[in-house]
Nucleic acid binder design. Structure first.
Lengths: 320, 320
DNA sequence: ACCCTGTATGTTCATTTGTTCATAGTAACT
DNA sequence: AGTTACTATGAACAAATGAACATACAGGGT
């Protein structure tokens, strides 16, 4: 079915209000075909069903976190519906609106990858800017067949800002520091890493240290290695670099085998924007905050509460 | 059901993809309530279903008409679906996009009323402009209980352009020229009529002379009077002023009893924008074109063909 | 030419949805 | 307080829709 017909069917259904049966008779096909056509019209974006609602930050939580950690910007999306995908969608939407405000022509934007970043990517819309460069902050090639979504996320950002992409088609963690050196020796990789260092804006998700994380599933660790990492107090990661609850890199050897921007460099960014959704990430976020690896935080109501709550009850900073 | 709940239900249904039954259980109400809530959400604009498609003018028809009548702008919307309301919607959308291009700050926009204008009004969206004045071109109070939609149309234009409204809350046709004088004597009415004369842009539908027209139904004529009007060769009206196929006012006494801008003044407008949808309006449109009462025409494919076709076949200019 | 594979269409059935009707609750007015 | 009119709700039914299955058709390969 060509898109001209799809359009016609969609209009008859949604605008005129005919039933599928009526359209089927008129078009002399079976009703099932109309049903499928309508499906296709939605998938192809001819029909767009969108829900309008103001997305305001939950102010009192925003303020509390902003002040406690001296951040530049905190956005706490209200939880309208308790579904992780939906919450991520809203957080992504909020971040997008923020980006529209802060991104200027000729900016360099660094991005990582992961589930949360993918949710952001889906919320991006076309923005009028010129001369933007979007650069990956860390390697995005998985070790096992489990693909990371790094390239599609990069593409989404590139499209939205009419930007030039700088990808990092290398593993994010390798076997030895020597391999890091060799890979970084490649001029294209070196240039990309350099650009990442110089990006004015960095955007990344905060990962939770757990065997459910993509990083583990991507095959970068054996179960034993990961267990050891957890024993060393790892609570979360940013750009594949693991830190403990105090925000300290918890395995220097691992860190030296990681390809991508170092966390210390994030501290110098004008906009170091971290995203994190899920109350189980409270510890990870606190670690990141302690480390000072962000100055902007985008999260949701539930997670924000978890962060503050953990603080209040939590004198157990030391015990992983 | 408050709009907070509506939003939640709408998101669960359209974004999460739950069935109404599932939502009903979760919210502990009957499924019927959810069904109704979803209805309400659409009606209130929380859920917006819109169909995206490029709306380009049918170029070869556009050109033919433009050249034949020496117009400034002609837009012929393709007929995707042969439903009058839908076609009017598209024509309205096309006009809106044109207005966005031509309307400047501090402009004065004159508008009439009627079915076609109502369709335009529905397509208007917020536009950033300042100092706009929107003025009614002709009286908008019906004689019988049949209400004209003049005020809601004016309101829609006013909102879209953040404009100041100048309404003409008087009948469009009265019993005698003396009454016209008396009414026009009122300072507010006089000022409004004066403003209408000075509007840079005028927008109006071309009406068909027929007993189905709102003008007749509004009770401005007895059946006998209307019959006589038709016998005098009336083919259509603009701002309640009737003309024949050659574009001549066909009843001067009637015209002198009509309140609103005179058709000769339309000839001097920078933008005299006429809208007309429906192949049965071909004669009316041709009359208007012969009279030179417009320099921009917004219509649809079928009607455009009817206009051109009538010309070719039509040597019957004289016979009403 | 034949077979195979993948896609598109129609038929049928199960599910989902819209609507009607009866009822209960609620607010305004006497 | 009682009455009335209106709205909101749930139950039940009828209609509309989605999905599984079966069939036909087209293109690519041998």
């Amino acid at each position: 079915m060509d898109s001209k017909n799809l359009l016609k069917i969609a209009r008859l259904y949604y605008e005129v209000g005919l039933t599928q049966e009526q359209i089927a008779q008129q078009e002399k096909v079976s009703r099932a075909t109309i049903s499928r056509a309508l499906d296709a019209a939605v998938k192809q974006g001819i029909v767009e069903i969108k829900i309008r609602y103001p997305l305001n930050s939950v102010e009192y939580l925003e303020e509390k976190i902003t002040k406690k950690y001296g951040l530049k910007k905190v956005f706490v999306v209200p939880v309208i519906v308790p579904y992780p995908e939906i919450i991520k969608k809203d957080v992504g939407g909020a971040l997008f609106r923020f980006l529209v405000q802060i991104v200027r022509d000729n900016d360099v934007i660094g991005i990582s990858w992961g589930m949360t970043m993918a949710a952001v990517a889906e919320q991006l819309e076309k923005v009028e800017r010129t001369g933007i460069k979007v650069v990956q902050l860390n390697g995005g090639i998985g070790k096992s067949c489990f693909a990371t979504n790094a390239s599609s996320i990069l593409e989404a950002f590139t499209n939205a800002f009419s930007a030039v992409p700088y990808s990092l088609p290398v593993p994010t963690i390798v076997d030895s520091p020597e391999i890091v050196k060799v890979i970084s020796g490649d001029s294209r990789i070196r240039d990309t890493l350099e650009l990442a260092k110089n990006s004015r804006i960095a955007i990344y998700g905060i990962g939770k240290a757990s065997t459910n994380s993509i990083l583990f599933k991507s095959g970068y660790f054996t179960p034993d290695e990961y267990e050891e990492l957890l024993n060393k107090g790892a609570v979360g990661d940013i750009c594949s670099r693991y830190f403990n609850i105090r925000g300290e890199i918890c395995d220097n050897y691992l860190d030296s085998r990681t390809i991508g921007i170092s966390l210390d460099l994030l501290k110098e960014k004008e906009y170091a924007i971290a995203l994190a959704v899920g109350e189980d990430k409270a510890k990870s976020i606190i670690g990141a905050l302690q480390g000072g690896y962000l100055n902007c935080l985008f999260t949701d109501e539930i997670t924000a509460n978890a962060i503050l709550h953990y603080q209040e009850g939590g004198l157990n900073y030391e015990s992983s």
